[in-house]
């Protein structure tokens, strides 16, 4: 393993904590400012898959469980898509979020990965997301986030996010919040 720049780790922790707070406080306007225009935000479907060549641990990866290229995802948004998602929440007619879910996002296991050619940083993290609309509508989910952050003016912008949910069948009644 390589040692990590302590300042970078501190910066990332701060960035993720703030992002989670903005989403939990529903400050979508401020959150959108952290999102790059070229964002790709994806949540793949996931399948229980054989690990037949189990001796080859290199092939025994999570990626094999995820939707393949031509397959259907749960979310596949570009900037326009994610902006519409936010607009919808503010439309006054997004009934699944009226009243809005009470949410809490806990982000941990923050791990910087490879530095990318364009100066971006790949960051892995773990997400625990809770939402509640009263006792009959509560759900938890956990996921891995694989992000690409671009450093910009002493801050980061979110260029890519892949959210790998730890379920093959989603247990909440919908996915009405930003993960």
């Amino acid at each position: 393993m390589t040692l990590v720049d302590a300042q970078l780790l501190a910066d990332l922790h701060f960035w993720y904590a703030r992002e989670a707070r903005l989403l939990d406080e529903r400050r979508y306007d401020l959150w959108l400012e952290t999102v790059d225009d070229a964002i790709r935000y994806q949540v793949p479907t996931r399948y229980l898959t054989a690990q037949a060549d189990i001796t080859d641990f290199g092939a025994w990866t999570v990626d094999r469980e995820l939707a393949q290229a031509s397959d259907v995802l749960l979310i596949d948004d570009d900037h326009a898509g994610i902006s519409k998602r936010i607009e919808r929440l503010q439309s006054g007619m997004a009934w699944a979020e009226m009243p809005p879910s009470i949410t809490r996002r806990i982000v941990s296991n923050i791990e910087p990965g490879e530095a990318q050619e364009d100066g971006g940083i790949e960051v892995f993290s773990a997400l625990l997301a809770f939402k509640s609309r009263g006792p009959d509508e509560r759900s938890f989910l956990t996921a891995q986030r694989r992000d690409l952050l671009l450093p910009a003016d002493g801050d980061f912008r979110l260029r890519r996010r892949l959210v790998i949910i730890d379920d093959t069948v989603l247990m909440g009644e919908n996915l009405s919040i930003v993960l």
């Binding site: 749960l74 909440g172 919908n174 009405s176």
Partner: peptide, 16 residues
């Protein structure tokens, strides 16, 4: 996918 499915802009409100 943007309209249907658990995160779809239509179906979220259907399921509710």
């Amino acid at each position: 996918v943007s309209a249907f499915g658990p995160a779809g802009s239509f179906e979220q409100d259907d399921s509710a």
